[in-house]
């Protein structure tokens, strides 16, 4: 396992800018303080990723509740939220999101935007990579936090290709942090 802030898929090198490596949840404190309109984006891979006793859909629900965040599920992940009767989740395509996040006045499907922060995971690595590239270049009003296990160079903060156990520990720390450290 690499544990370095380099693109997880080795060919996916991009350009001069790269995300900062998030080695602990605390580094997010300042951004969480500054950004109050937060959106959580959850892709289809979340359905098959475990976290604690549940999966990464359960984690999304917990994060959404703790951090007062709307969820947009992509690639059909919405079905899992519907099945869990979680209503603060809506569906959009990853590519639609990549487009809409470029627009400063986009209020989103809940009508509660414009968002100033996204947290994102679960979209296939390369596709999330391209989405975040759109945000980095054209959606500069957004602070992008990638909370998938692997390094996403176009976010502001991203994990440096985490070991699995460590990754899940930090996820729990983030959960606590967005909830105001309760």
């Amino acid at each position: 396992m690499v544990m370095k802030p380099v693109p997880w898929q080795t060919g996916e090198i991009c350009g001069p800018n790269a995300a900062k490596a998030m080695k602990s949840a605390d580094v997010l404190k300042r951004d969480l303080k500054n950004c109050k309109k937060r959106l959580l984006i959850v892709g289809s891979d979340a359905l098959t990723e475990k976290h604690g006793k549940g999966d990464m859909i359960d984690y999304a629900i917990a994060l959404s509740k703790a951090g007062n965040m709307d969820i947009i599920a992509t690639g059909g992940a919405i079905k899992a939220f519907v099945e869990r009767s979680y209503e603060r989740a809506k569906t959009m395509g990853a590519m639609e999101l990549a487009y809409r996040l470029q627009h400063e006045d986009w209020v989103g499907p809940f009508g509660k935007g414009p968002y100033d922060m996204i947290m994102i995971y679960g979209i296939p690595y390369y596709m999330q990579w391209t989405l975040l590239s759109a945000v980095m270049n054209f959606g500069t009003h957004i602070t992008a936090i990638a909370i998938g296990r692997y390094f996403q160079p176009h976010a502001k903060w991203s994990f440096p290709n985490m070991k699995e156990k460590q990754y899940h520990t930090i996820l729990d720390e983030i959960l606590e942090l967005v909830g105001g450290g309760k």
Binding site: C14, M95, S133, N137, F138
Partner: peptide
Amino acid sequence: SYMPYCQVCCLCTMGKCD
């Protein structure tokens, strides 16, 4: 909706350009 897949250009000798 552009999603730059490469953020530099190296097509001519004035580059690479960021």
